[in-house]
Amino acid sequence: MMAEEAKEVVIEVRDLTVGFGRVTILDSVALDVFRGEVLGFVGGSGAGKSVLLRTIIGLIKKRAGRISVLGVDMGKAGERMRRRVERRWGVLFQQGALFSSLTVRQNVQFPMREYLDLSDRLLDEIAVAKLAMVGLSADVCEKFPSELSGGMIKRVALARALALDPEIVFLDEPTSGLDPISAADFDQLIRTLQQTLGLTVFMVTHDLDTLNTVCDRIAVLADRKIIAAGPMSTMLASEHPWLRSYFHGKRARAISQSG
């Protein structure tokens, strides 16, 4: 592992405040994500993890603060600049968010058709390649999302998120709703893809196994702030009550025993 100074910051969040109406969800949040790392982002249900993710990708408006992605200040950047940054990230939504009226192949090709001028042959080949990378065979190409299982939907959604070879991938609870075996497969898949494609992964998750096996660093959101960020060992050593109950609770015992 490199020293932190040597790493390039790809997502930089400073003093970010987000709220709806009179409620403040995030209060002066600061967070760095470094190139090539898998960052696991945890926090209680309703703590605002997805809000932070959605604010970074621009789906929710911020009240104050600064978000820079790949060195571009997203708040100040013009429309064209923002589009160019958006092209360099992929998002896997919690429910997959596949277009239900398009086949799997069309779903994966959708961003490619929008942004790239490619021949049909190359589009088809790349779609098959992307599906193979997420562990799906070419047989699923002509299926519709309603004909797929939950795990397959997540895989296809990941293939779509990877369609343009992004540098950053945002994953919103990638393993939720999957059985432990599929979840472990998915973890492995994320790890492999991250290594093959040199991705930076920002992952919202609750899955302790995922945090343990895949994530380089973990950031914890509680009380509207990031209360800790660092590798698993830092989390386990922390004395913060929320962290203690999260990482030393009943469900976490297996991990602390093994780790």
Partner: peptide, 20 residues
Amino acid sequence: ETYSALMEELSHIQRTPART
């Protein structure tokens, strides 16, 4: 070195996509 894993991965993919 950086790209060898990617090339390795792609070398297993069968070329012809199955269209109905």
